[in-house]
Design a protein around this nucleic acid. Sequence first.
DNA 1: CAGTGGTCTAGACCACCGG
DNA 2: CGGTGGTCTAGACCACTGT
Lengths: 228, 228
Amino acid sequence: MAGSYRAVKAEVLRRIAEGAWPPGGPVPGEAALAREFGAARATVNRALRELAEEGILERRRRAGTRVRPAPLRQARFDIPIVRREVEATGAAYAYALLSDGVEPAPAWLRGRLGLAEGERVRHLRCLHRAGDAPFQHEERWIALAALPQAEGADFSQVGPTEWLIAAVPFSEVEIGLSAVSDPAAAAALEAAPGAPLFRVERTTWWEGRGVTHVRLTFAPGHRMTTRY
Amino acid sequence: MAGSYRAVKAEVLRRIAEGAWPPGGPVPGEAALAREFGAARATVNRALRELAEEGILERRRRAGTRVRPAPLRQARFDIPIVRREVEATGAAYAYALLSDGVEPAPAWLRGRLGLAEGERVRHLRCLHRAGDAPFQHEERWIALAALPQAEGADFSQVGPTEWLIAAVPFSEVEIGLSAVSDPAAAAALEAAPGAPLFRVERTTWWEGRGVTHVRLTFAPGHRMTTRY
DNA sequence: CAGTGGTCTAGACCACCGG
DNA sequence: CGGTGGTCTAGACCACTGT
């Protein structure tokens, strides 16, 4: 097990935890570690590269590798498709389209997506259920200039999210998480008007153009979790 | 630029976006791609491995590589130290200890950390400010059996989070995000009693033992964002 | 049981940047 | 300017798993 990048990672972590390599302090160079561990430099490189990506180490050319002073805590969350998320709980998934229309983009949305004044967007509100219980309220805007085929799409059976996955293969995305009080969403979710609701907002660009913005508001009590 | 793992990634992404390699469909083997691109297999391997880690591809031995049918959306969020987060906004950071005591662990906490009945925990409540405005309310429990030195630590000047970073180098962590209504936290944050508050909960284990649990509750309007 | 990805090695070139 | 990490190559062995 001497020459395994996993073994190298584990050993490096051990030395940091042990205090042998204190926070902010330097880590021996790849060549030295390769010699010490009896591994190829490429192997050590992969180990250190991954530790850097995980926020444990800090690497810079010429300056060398150091232990991050305050380990950059980062968490990776999966953002699954609602249907899968519901089905994972064992409940039956149900979808309903609440409202649907085409309208000029409001100012805040134009700013967010970079749209010109007067540009039209398709505006949808949907409800996703887990069994009989409301699970997630989705409010979505799609820029029709960027995605003309969205004007004729039928969202009565399949939610716009799933439709978009097929229509827009790749994009740049910004995700925001917050806690909100939204009487309209609360009503759709059959929650008290002032209930604190967990919201995920996602804006998507494609080739520099704003394509769509969505607000996913969850029924009270929803938690997003991850481990590492 | 033929033999660059970045070039390979870009080309693979292009072919997927283009529709040449449809979702769910197979991707040629590493050997074939290496031949086609005039690169070493290790180079192609790195490209495909990273795309798999990013949720674009799915790889299995013997079965080969496929394009993920519904691209696994995942987002990575940085969870910075409060002080840095506040200072990043340009505001002055201020810390205050609101309450501090040692008590038997309540049942819900024992379950979460895996503590025995009657085990004692240090229970702290703190407030982090950005300038004059309350920014984050921190409520923390530290298991004294697992971390005896926490009993005598002075948390009047430095928050327990920063103290813990120095005391517990590495650990397993579970993070949960939710929206809550918490009158006590709201009061400390000078918010309306029923205001929707964004909460981050983090449980930390070390060598299989539950060490600490924290509730970070943010002032109204807080947003956690990320791009990719 | 054969083929695919997973990993390792030894050697090499080079971009970058701190002193 | 020189040392460090970043990357690439050619070749090899092997673990795993679908057929």
